[in-house]
């Protein structure tokens, strides 16, 4: 066993926890709990950023951490929660038949992302290089969430989750993106979430459901 530094251990632990929240998102059926989990994921990201800032002495990363905390752990979850309450979805649960299969598929995706990342890992010299595999996995799991779920709110969470994965990779492997990019992305996400909110309200008004499968009706092909 190679002696590993506390920092590396902590980063790994955080990576594992973020990955875990992604899995938990896939397993969760209740809207309120889903949003809470998403907030936790954001908080973990913020902690990771702060940790990286602490270790690499980059003060601007503290700002980034604060931004993440404010936006991803507080503001967006709060907004989504309000939306859910407004749309009366608090006690709504999604029907998850065959969810065990989805979860096994998620595990397979994790292995796959590790497989994909392996050549990069061998080139990289950073201590936290393995975390890249986890980041990719988080992105893929977010995508999976979007694919397997029908409820629009869940899909938004999946989208945000993908973004979280990218952010995680950026923070851990390159010690964060330039501030401008970060701010831009953060703003984009916020705008996106608001747009989604508006979209839901319209969606519900027009097709009386938030089940995106109902959008099938919009296609022109005859059935």
């Amino acid at each position: 066993m190679v002696a590993v530094g506390l920092y590396t251990q902590a980063i790994r632990m955080l990576a594992a926890l973020v990955l875990f929240t992604s899995f938990a998102l896939l397993a969760q059926t209740r809207m309120a709990a889903l949003i809470r989990l998403f907030a936790w994921q954001g908080a973990l990201l913020a902690v990771t950023t702060a940790l990286v800032a602490l270790v690499t002495h980059q003060p601007r990363l503290y700002l980034s951490a604060l931004l993440t905390l404010g936006l991803k752990a507080l503001l967006i979850p709060w907004f989504l929660n309000r939306l859910v309450i407004r749309l009366e979805l608090q006690h709504e649960t999604e029907d998850l038949r065959g969810n065990a299969m989805v979860l096994l598929g998620a595990a397979a995706l994790t292995v796959f992302s590790y497989y994909v990342v392996m050549p990069i890992v061998e080139l990289s010299t950073l201590v936290t290089r393995n975390v890249i595999a986890v980041s990719l996995a988080i992105v893929l799991l977010g995508m999976l969430l979007i694919i397997v779920r029908r409820k629009a709110v869940t899909q938004v969470v999946g989208f945000m989750c993908m973004e979280n994965g990218l952010f995680f990779a950026a923070v851990v492997s390159t010690y964060g993106m330039p501030m401008v990019v970060e701010l831009g992305v953060a703003f984009d996400v916020l705008v996106a979430s608001i747009l989604f909110g508006v979209f839901f309200l319209h969606l519900r008004d027009s097709i009386d459901s938030l089940d995106v499968d109902r959008l099938n009706r919009l296609r022109e092909a005859d059935e």
């Binding site: 790994r12 990576a15 594992a16 990955l19 875990f20 899995f23 595990a107 994790t110 292995v111 590790y114 393995n130 975390v131 595999a133 986890v134």
Partner: peptide, 11 residues
Amino acid sequence: LLGLLSHIILE
């Protein structure tokens, strides 16, 4: 399973 995977991937 996640434990196992994170062992393989991270450790």
